[in-house]
Design a protein around this nucleic acid. Structure first.
Lengths: 243, 243
DNA sequence: TTGCTTTGTGTCCAAACGGCACGAAGGCCG
DNA sequence: CGGCCTTCGTGCCGTTTGGACACAAAGCAA
């Protein structure tokens, strides 16, 4: 057993890319590190995994300690395990991303200690450790998952407009979508219920409100339905033709 | 630091789902465990990760020790970290799958020690540890990756027929494909080069041989091409209509 | 030469995609 | 109350893609 014991000298952590969506902007919740290493730098929230804790549980704990939120969409992406990725020793980290309704987020005691802040995904600088790499991997995964499963709604309030939904997809997929085609596509899936209510407090024609119907989705899946938004075909630049 | 040290009591392993394709049948290379725990049961090849070894390197090492193969397609899938998944202690494992040309596989000294054998994916019983769960996750990932990237060729010899390629996709996607439509689709991608040679040694009309052209693929990608095989739409059972 | 097996190929219809423009609703302001 | 401003909501049509479908020709073997 002593040979085996030479292996038991490493630790593992979870890191969590917490996505939120705020009025057209996709955001990530980062914390400012108060201790070495990388003191003062922005980093992904994460923690070492307790010896008797499942890794999924650890990821959920990190999220809850920071935001107070439970029962949030959480997906493991992959492990990062370069030998030298952590200065204090061999630490393999397992990356998750989660989707939160940003309006539900409130500062909790735990998050007072370390400064936490939403950062627009398009304006994130150098992060601590290999967290840029982790963030990129999670964003890529999100892009992919959002096209395959109806998880985008996790980022929106329970009642939302189709325009909000479209903006959400545009922010995640980093592309523009055609309004009419997007609506045609989404509505044809029969996943949304028309709440019969309108937006309030806007200085223009108010939009119809919709809600996602998870039960309906489950039923459709059982009938063979498969949620899919095609990757938008890249528009060919005319200048690149004729070569 | 003593608090931190309580965390350094766990180990990491990698487990590798090695896929091969043999004449219509998708296979997985398993080893029979010679030691406890789970002695005598079939298991995925895997090993603890050395303290100074990257996890990707460890996965490649496991593969090479067993098959003698290097430079093989290898993709990390995810980590499995339930507290009690390993009887001897806390061991988190990181799952990979790899794609090998089964004809290249030869028994190596290392694989004499522990009995290794290809198993048809459709006939795999209860495996050691949580390896069934790992296998399922890797198979799912393979299904998905094979539709998005031209990695299927990794499982075929350098020269192959379109029928072989079709059978490969059918085995992975667990579906049947239409011969004419499959050919139309694949050939329209311009990824294959017609070698101008024919199959030999078959007792019937020999098929044309093709090869995958990676350079061509890279170039097309640079021009915005995106490899994609649509998920075959499930054929609606007529009996379920008219409700 | 005949028979056996597998190859290789084209058409047609239906569905999905993608580009595009304007009248209608409601709030605001004067 | 009327006019203005902003965003909402909607339909058509040409093009592309998907999917069903059958048979003659090639090569080998006996």
């Amino acid at each position: 057993m002593s040979e085996v014991n030479t292996f038991f000298k490493s630790a593992f952590s979870v890191d969590n890319v917490i996505f939120g969506f705020d009025d057209g902007d996709l955001k990530v919740l980062l914390i400012k590190r108060g201790t070495s290493p990388y003191k003062g730098m922005w980093a992904l929230p994460g923690d070492l995994v307790y010896p008797n804790e499942d890794i999924d549980t650890a990821a959920a704990r990190v999220l809850e300690e920071l935001t107070g939120l439970r029962n949030v969409y959480l997906e493991q992406v992959k492990a990062f395990g370069k030998v030298d990725r952590h200065p204090i020793g061999r630490v393999i980290t397992i990356a998750y991303y989660s989707l939160v309704k940003i309006s539900n987020y409130t500062v909790t005691p735990a998050s007072f200690a370390r400064k936490a802040q939403w950062h627009s995904i398009s304006a994130i600088g150098k992060l601590a450790f290999d967290h840029n790499e982790i963030l990129d991997a999670c964003f890529e995964r999100l892009k992919q998952s959002v096209r395959t499963r109806p998880i985008g709604f996790e980022l929106l309030p329970p009642k939302f407009t189709l325009t909000q939904l479209q903006h959400l997809y545009e922010a995640i997929l980093e592309t523009e979508l055609d309004k009419r085609n997007f609506r045609k596509k989404i509505l044809s899936m029969n996943l949304l219920v028309d709440l019969g209510e309108n937006q309030e407090g806007v200085a223009h024609r108010p939009a119809r409100l919709y809600a996602f119907d998870p039960a309906r989705y489950e039923q459709l899946v059982a009938e063979g339905f498969h949620f899919e938004l095609k990757e938008s075909r890249r528009k060919m630049n005319p200048a690149s033709l004729g070569g």
